[in-house]
Nucleic acid binder design. Structure first.
Lengths: 219, 219
DNA sequence: ATAAATTGTTAGATTGATCTAACAAAATTG
DNA sequence: CAATTTTGTTAGATCAATCTAACAATTTAT
């Protein structure tokens, strides 16, 4: 069984993996906020335990076992976030830190029960997919709001960033998943967008914000 | 902040403390399932961190801070057990192991919310009191069923042992907290009791079982 | 009250996770 | 392509939590 530390490395490796499934030591060190020598020794441990493949001076690659393990930890994290929001009344900006701890609990029944109580949700409160019990992840292909055109109507479906500050910004503008937005105009010099949505005055969203909003185009 | 290991020592110290608030190194080693030298070095750490008082060859004593910290961990454990039973549908025999992990989560809001959702419960699913937010514990003085007399009617209120095996035994006899029992007779040679209770055939309970059942006498 | 048993301590080793300093390989760039 | 920068490795240290072996203090019992 992976230690809590190993579990955190697996999650980071899973999230950092590129098209070739590779992750550099330096990226991993940055993500984990530890030094490169620490990562160097940890990848040796992870390899010894069968979670990844490592060769000197090469980027590392999760084994299929490693990928599955990572996905199952992410499953626990996202089920927890959804449970906290749907069953315990937390705001979407409050749940990440709690889930970061709960995800390490070893009690399959606990997460099974959450899953059942919520009717087997497929996305978390930020629109990210919840891996299934086999660790399979259903990738969803959303469009970034910043790639949409003036006149289009879209539904906010997910976020590429779920930092507390960003979520609090969205709260302050009454923006939540499912909100139907109409793009009134796009400023060509800074790519900011003027949008309207239900029961809310017209808002201007910066390019930075638009990039982080993932949408489904409905008209 | 106490490490997870330190938290476990604090809990054990709290539970093992005698009338003089003292705990021996050997008792603590047995409870924690580690060697005495391990305890020896850990009590030095715990003293350094202000959780207890230690002098060579003397039993240790929790400081008031240590007692409070321990009670607050026990609070998290018992709130969790109650939440698992009342809000998530677990059986009282399933919750200890899960709570043993959840109790180490650092997220006051999480336990606050459980507490609110359950309407501020004062006992856990096994009848043990839940310490309040200040770490104060309301001691309840129950009678052991084994100290009751033939002809008395009692209500099962708590247990002195909550091992999975004992809880499964109680389940098999449909005994749960709140069950009203009438003592038909007490066998003098082995102190077993013949009892009757709602919707159930007459049962014989061994002395060992009776000792572990805490009751309120109602007639 | 001495011997035996129990309880507690010290010393020294191990493992996991981390660090800094020094160096080596690989990648980038003038 | 050689110089510089970036990336990665090794060596060696530290800290927390654990162990065993050896010994010392305290308690119990004959």
């Amino acid at each position: 069984m992976a230690s809590q530390t190993e579990e955190n490395y697996l999650k980071s490796l899973f999230n950092l993996a590129n098209e070739k499934n590779e992750v550099n030591i330096s990226e991993l060190a940055a993500q984990m906020q530890v030094s490169m020598p620490t990562v160097n020794s940890m990848v040796k441990t992870l390899q010894k335990n069968g979670w990844l493949i490592y060769e000197k001076y090469k980027p590392v690659t999760l084994t299929s076992n490693g990928k599955k393990e990572a996905a199952l930890i992410i499953r626990k994290h996202r089920l927890t976030e959804m449970f906290l929001v749907n069953k315990m009344g937390f705001g979407w900006e409050e749940v990440h830190e709690i889930a970061e701890q709960v995800e390490h609990i070893h009690a399959p029944k606990f997460f099974e029960r959450m899953d059942e109580m919520m009717g087997h949700p497929t996305i978390d409160p930020h629109g990210s997919p919840i891996p299934d019990k086999q660790g399979r992840i259903q990738e969803i292909h959303y469009l970034s709001l910043s790639d949409c055109k003036s006149g289009q109507t879209v539904i906010l479906a997910a976020l590429t960033n779920s930092s507390t500050e960003f979520l609090e910004f969205l709260n302050s503008r009454s923006l939540s998943l499912g909100t139907e937005l109409t793009i009134n105009s796009v400023e060509s010099y800074d790519k900011s967008m003027v949008v309207t949505y239900a029961n809310h005055p017209t808002e201007t969203l910066s390019e930075k914000v638009c990039e982080r909003l993932l949408v489904r185009v409905i008209g």
